[in-house]
Amino acid sequence: MNAHDTWIAFYTILRKEIVRFMRIWSQTLLPPVINQSLYFIIFGAYIGSQVKSINGIPYMAFIVPGLVMMAVITSSFTNVVSSFFGSKFQKNIEELLVSPTPNYVIIAGYIMGGVARGILVGAIVFAISALFTHPVIYNGWIVALFVFLTAVVFSLGGLINGIFATKFDDVSIFPTFVLTPLTYFGGVFYSINDLPPLWQTLTKFNPILYMVDGFRYGFFGVSDINVSFSIVMLAAFTFILAFAAVYLLQKGTGLKS
């Protein structure tokens, strides 16, 4: 395929993905927005009013980046895993597999679909946070970089989950038993500096910490971890997962007998 054909193939996959999640917006956009709004109300407005500020930031404002990031992570992961597994289940993934679309383009199309949904949901959640606190952005580029890379990483994670999934249960195991605990322990609701030393060390093995912390830096200009280190970590995750996804698709894992 030449560059023009490749672009058309990529655009087709991306368009299809966006049309898909917009068509079922009540399942794809609404639930995370409602969830995060409840967090704002319960943890922010009610419990948060009784919590002291963290790193000089009011608690309500402190949890905004974490909650936005939570929505981005969940939405981008879920979008790709459900769409890809759905295509496998209905066998319409074969439409792509019989075509000359290169594997990296298939991956890019699905990933950007996940990124689009993640960022859209994140933007809505951020807009809702304005009802509870005055939003501030310290460095828009950092915010954009972290939200984009995080959405890419979790979209790739969703794709790999989708490649291996053989039944619907497999689609929900990772989000339930891995993603949710990691997100909760990733510093969404607290600063790791407030944890005992052992827990601080353990938390540093959690990749979500770097995403939430770097993202929060973009809003307030303060962080628990060096931001450059967080960017390197995110870039490393992106590279490793992208490589794994290309390898698995090339090998036909879960797709070809």
Binding site: H4, A9, Y11, S99, P100
Partner: peptide, 12 residues
């Protein structure tokens, strides 16, 4: 949509 998307995968 099914048909036009398939064309897209082939660069149409």
């Amino acid at each position: 949509d099914i048909i036009v998307a398939q064309g897209g995968y082939f660069g149409v």
